[in-house]
């Protein structure tokens, strides 16, 4: 039983770490502000979310799990909001998304 439990925890943590890796790669490689913000917000919400969920399951019977779930709720609220605020400000100050160059798949 504990083995299955731990396997779930490890799988969730690895999933989150993979999302962080993908988000960081996106931040470094994607061409313009909007696509980079998109990549980073994915790793903030899904990556940090699943790692926090893994931690909550890891300490599950103890009340600390509830605290971690509250943290998860806070992250789910705050990180998309900050990303939205950035994108909103960029859009309203007139930052144009990068147009695909000729011959590039759009």
């Amino acid at each position: 039983m504990t083995a299955v439990w731990h396997a779930i925890v490890v799988a969730l943590a690895l999933f989150g770490a993979a999302f962080f890796l993908a988000g960081t790669l996106g931040l470094l490689r994607l061409p313009d502000f909007y696509t980079r913000a998109h990549a980073v917000s994915k790793c903030d919400t899904v990556g940090a979310g699943s790692i926090l969920l893994a931690l909550a399951l890891y300490v599950a019977p103890q009340p600390e799990a509830l605290k971690i779930l509250l943290l998860l709720l806070l992250v789910l609220l705050s990180s998309p909001t900050s990303c939205h605020a950035l994108a909103h400000a960029a859009h309203h100050t007139g930052l144009e998304p990068r147009e695909p160059r000729a011959g590039e798949p759009s």
Binding site: L77, S78, T81, H84, A85, H88, H92, T93
Partner: peptide, 16 residues
């Protein structure tokens, strides 16, 4: 202000 605050941000801040 140059950029009107987004209603989404206002809602979340008021919630928190």
């Amino acid at each position: 202000p140059a950029v009107a605050p987004s209603p989404v941000v206002g809602f979340v801040i008021r919630l928190l």
